[in-house]
Design a protein around this nucleic acid. Sequence first.
DNA 1: AGGGCAACCTGGGGGC
DNA 2: TGCCCCCAGGTTGCCC
Length: 288
Amino acid sequence: MPELPEVEVVRSGVEQHVIGRTVAAVEVLHPRAVRRHVPGAADFTGRLVGTKIMAVRRRGKYLWFDLSDGDAVLAHLGMSGQLLVQPPEVPDERHLRVRVRFADAGPELRFVDQRTFGGLSLAELVEVDGTVVPTTVAHIARDPMDPLFDVAATARRLRSRRTEVKRALLDQTLVSGIGNIYADEALWRVKLHGTRPADRLTAAQARGVLTAAAEVMADALRAGGTSFDALYVNVNGESGYFSRSLDAYGREGEPCRRCGAPLVRESFMNRSSFSCPSCQPKPRALRR
DNA sequence: AGGGCAACCTGGGGGC
DNA sequence: TGCCCCCAGGTTGCCC
């Protein structure tokens, strides 16, 4: 499942293949892929044709293409989305949703998505806090790898949340790019249980978990992006499988790499959380 | 206002 | 073998 590192791998991979190229034709093969583009598929296609791709940018898990007309194509991979650069003669992928052909007749850009949680849309650009982003991304916070990410300020906001720390880490309006996998990894690194109340963390703990998230992401990025879902494939069609195994996520029953205790899996928001029962003790019941 | 949570999807896997 | 149910999970939108 693509989180920030996977999306960055896709961004940097796609960038080399599409910048400076003019869109000649767009084919929407599944309407759900452009459902976020409210004016509809025909509008999406019509406005995209003839524009040139100027840049490929990212914030958190969102990716967008700056266009020569001043707008942008926003892409979100959802849980199974892929952006592939493929020669036109390559047969369509089973779950191909959108195809972008270029005027130079070179490789196409293809959006492939089995579970259809992802999608593309067109948006105007707007400046938010000194950075230009698509209007539909204006509410998304800077991610931990953003050069302008403010650890101290985000830690203060984190400590003001009356919720559990893992919930807060997954809130893209507080800090973006962190999904279920990297949240568990960051919490493991700083020995905090995900149900710890955010407003009971010390300033050092709050800064620590955010810094840990950035470090986990940097490690994953160096390894080419984590993914153990065969659905995730990078821009060249190669699996981004992380050769270095994770410390917490998916390791139920396996020994903690710090203390050896078997990790446990707990249900959380209809999904799974993995943690070390010894290093990351659950908070005692708290009186407020 | 802000937190919590159902709904949106598909395919793989387990149980029977 | 086949059917059914569960599971994975990011974001939105709605409820409280």
